[in-house]
Nucleic acid binder design. Structure first.
Lengths: 138, 138
DNA sequence: ACGATATGTAACTAGATTAGTTACAGATTG
DNA sequence: CAATCTGTAACTAATCTAGTTACATATCGT
């Protein structure tokens, strides 16, 4: 299973919690429960998306580049998704069949619609919304 | 990549196209461009979901159990999704961390919301809608 | 300048998942 | 009873993910 979205959201929630302090990959990994290298492979993706800033060297680490209310779950989803889409389409349909000839075009349109609905939901939730959830009683 | 949703939708669109004729797995596989066994592994899932009826033996095959306008893409999506979820959650967060302690609960709620938005979009599209797309000019 | 510290990244391993394939038992038809 | 078709087991190859070790590079503080 792909846990990158969960780990990325965990990391950013942690950075929001400790803001504006810079946190190193070992500390983050301790909270996530994984290896620091797994975190260090994730940080460049979040950095390129403009969600965090990372500093190398002694005293370095990662911190949020924006306010928690300005980072949506869609930002995170897009940052860790290479291109887009978790729906795959089979690649060798039969062009001699009326269905096979157009299935790629028809299905990709449907999948775009589905991804769009997913994206709109994620766009409506921010790290600040999640922070409230983290603070409620168990 | 997971192409089961695409293949399942292809199969059902083909059965809608050839309705009410029963189609065997070899014929279906010829349209999809795969091995008949791949299709035969899919048919029981669609059958259990009540989308098709399958008959063994000579002259057998699969045919739609409902009208195309009564089969939604959500029906298909749920039929082929073992339990649920395109999102995975990492399994060993640190319970000593305020974020790690609640991350599974908070994230699963967000993921449910995202899946729900996806489901609502898929619920609004039927095999009959797709049939129109298959019939438009190239 | 230098030593300590932290990221970025390559390389490798193990495990899970997917699709494809062969083979065959069981069901159904005529 | 012979032909046909599904259901399913077993195996392979390819791909993906996470975890791990190792190290080059960058940065800070003294």
């Amino acid at each position: 299973m792909n846990t990158r979205f969960a780990v990325a959201t965990h990391v950013l929630s942690l950075l929001a919690h400790l803001r504006p302090e810079a946190v190193d990959s070992e500390h983050i990994a301790g909270s996530v429960g994984t290896n620091p290298v797994v975190i260090r492979r994730l940080l460049p993706l979040l950095s390129k998306a403009g969600l965090i800033r990372v500093q190398m060297g002694a005293g370095g680490g990662a911190h949020l580049a924006r306010l928690p209310e300005e980072i949506t779950l869609l930002d995170i989803y897009q940052a860790i998704s290479d291109d887009f889409g978790r729906f795959g389409i089979h690649d060798t349909p039969n062009p001699a069949c009326p269905v096979g000839r157009k299935v790629a075009k028809v299905l990709s349109a449907e999948m775009r619609g589905a991804e769009q609905a997913l994206a709109e939901q994620l766009r409506g939730r921010t790290l600040a919304d999640l922070a409230v959830e983290f603070q409620t009683a168990d």
